[in-house]
């Protein structure tokens, strides 16, 4: 593993702005899904992308802060179990930070595969385990019921996380400059 800094001032700012984006996307962007009357939540793709760029702590905090605030704005109070789920998605997909060097403009197909695997894993832990378990503890609900909700969230979130974060990473890596490459003619 590389010796990457864990939480610099830049990471902190990236996290703060990432969480702000999380809120904006959750509240304003409604993309209709193929299933009638449902919308795709594109937020997790962006969260995973920030995880790749800034690391697991940033990813986790973006989910934690972003989800807490957006829930509070929309519902008056956060649903804690799902907030924890959002944090987990960010932490797990943020592990990519240690395997990749996107800031230098590098993002390969192999990196994309790792990102997808970690995104699916993160979403699985979040929506099939953490969120339902949290809801079960908090409201003493039957496992089947909370698990069914989690399964639905897992299905759509895992797909959008993979597709969007990979697309964003490729696009972002193309905007980064490589060391010693700039010259004026």
């Amino acid at each position: 593993m590389s010796k990457k800094p864990l939480f610099t001032t830049k990471t902190l700012v990236g996290t703060g702005l990432g969480a702000a984006l999380f809120i904006v996307l959750t509240m304003f962007v409604k993309v209709p899904s193929p299933i009638p009357n449902t919308t795709i939540n594109i937020t997790y793709g962006v969260e995973a992308f920030f995880g790749v760029v800034f690391g697991p702590i940033a990813g986790g905090l973006i989910g934690l802060i972003g989800h807490t605030i957006s829930d509070s704005l929309m519902w008056g109070t956060p649903s804690w179990a799902w907030v924890a789920g959002s944090a987990v998605v960010g932490i797990v997909s943020g592990l990519c930070y240690y395997f990749m060097d996107i800031e230098s403009g590098k993002f390969s197909v192999k990196d994309a595969v790792i990102l997808c695997v970690l995104s699916v894993l993160g979403n699985a832990i979040a929506w099939l385990l953490v969120a339902p378990a949290g809801d079960m503890i908090q409201y003493a609900q039957p496992w089947d019921y909370v698990f069914a909700q989690g399964l639905m969230a897992f299905g759509s979130n895992a797909i959008t996380t993979c597709v969007l974060s990979v697309l964003l990473c490729f696009a972002y890596s193309k905007t980064r400059v490589k060391k010693g490459s700039l010259d004026i003619e």
Binding site: G16, A20, L25, F28, I65
Partner: peptide
């Protein structure tokens, strides 16, 4: 970080 999120949320939402 939390303070920055609250500070820049309106800016990001205007950009959006």
């Amino acid at each position: 970080t939390v303070a920055l999120t609250m500070r820049y949320f309106p800016d990001v939402s205007r950009d959006y």
